[in-house]
């Protein structure tokens, strides 16, 4: 199922939380939804689900969610790890939601087992840890086996094994031809999990492309070169690729951007310069994300004042 968000817009007083945001989430892949704190990710997810009132429309396979006969079969959402009644047992919570989606009782037991909640299924969740609350929230989202999963920071509070399981599960879920949109701050996780990314800042769209494309166009993709005759090497590379292509990497190296290792090696060879290292450096999602959001973040920490 293709999910198309068009011109989503939301203001709180004079603050624009989501600013004319449009993007598409496609089936068969995990789409990461990234942005700095306060960038409008959660608000966007709520707008998509019709929970928040704003402008714009989200179409689920071409129709607004309210026009689908059984919304729980269309989308399963997990927006917060604490959305449960503290005195309703985990099993009752899931059975109640199963009634909303005409899901069979057996499925409730299946998701309880899948999420490792057997030992607490008949307990009241008021004492649940954050991680346990996340598991219950995820169980809620996948209960009706919906075509689309919408998850807001689902890995928060999960232990490493659970995060690993979540990553594999979401990739498996998407591989079944379903649509998965996950917002997360854990960029290293996203780098492994996501096939496609939507990046926003200040409620505006910064990128909507494959993870590979986003990382490849980062300026931190460069070639690291070390040589005993660094000054001559620097002059030779600048002479052929331009002054701005080279930056110093102390004590004895330079970084060359916009060139391949073959090109840099060829320049050194033609000038008779010996090399002690020639390495292609690829940007991480984190580097690409920081570059992209650098100008869009209001709440940066660690500034120089």
């Amino acid at each position: 199922m293709i999910v198309t968000a068009s011109n989503l817009h939301k203001t709180y007083g004079r603050t624009v939380a989501v600013d004319d945001l449009s993007f598409q989430v496609r089936p068969g892949q995990v789409t990461g939804f990234l942005g700095p704190n306060g960038s409008g990710k959660s608000t966007t997810l709520r707008l998509m689900l019709g929970l928040d009132k704003g402008r714009g429309v989200t179409l689920w396979d071409g129709k607004p969610l309210a026009l689908h006969a059984h919304a729980p079969k269309v989308v399963g959402a997990h927006l917060d790890a604490k959305f449960f009644h503290p005195s309703r047992t985990a099993r009752s919570h899931l059975r109640m939601l199963a009634a909303a989606s005409r899901t069979r009782k057996k499925r409730v037991d299946e998701v309880i087992a899948l999420m490792g909640l057997e030992s607490v299924a008949n307990k009241r969740p008021k004492g649940f840890s954050l991680g346990m609350g996340q598991r219950l929230g995820l169980a809620t989202a996948i209960l009706a086996e919906p075509d689309v999963l919408l998850l807001d920071e689902p890995a928060n509070g999960l232990d490493p094994q659970s995060i690993h399981w979540l990553r594999d599960y979401l990739k498996y879920y998407a591989s079944q031809g379903r649509t998965v949109l996950v917002s997360s701050h854990l960029l290293s996780e996203m780098e492994i999990m996501a096939d496609h990314v939507v990046v926003i800042a200040k409620g505006r769209l910064l990128a909507d492309e494959s993870l590979v494309d986003l990382v490849n166009r980062s300026t931190t993709n460069d070639v690291l070169v070390r040589s005993a005759r660094l000054e001559e090497l620097t002059a030779a590379v600048r002479g052929e690729l331009g002054h701005d292509a080279v930056s110093e990497v102390p004590p004895d190296g330079i970084a060359v951007s916009g060139a391949t290792t073959d090109q840099v090696g060829d320049i050194a060879f033609r000038h008779g310069l010996p090399l002690s290292e020639l390495t292609k450096r690829t940007a991480s999602l984190e580097q690409a994300f920081l570059e992209l959001t650098d100008s869009g973040q209001d709440f940066r920490i660690g500034g120089t004042g």
């Binding site: 689900l49 729980p72 809620t140």
Partner: peptide, 18 residues
């Protein structure tokens, strides 16, 4: 009351958008 107090209204309105 319980729905707003514990946030479950969002689960309810996701399952039943009307």
């Amino acid at each position: 009351g319980h729905e707003y107090r514990y946030g479950t209204i969002r689960l309810t309105l996701t399952a039943f958008p009307r």
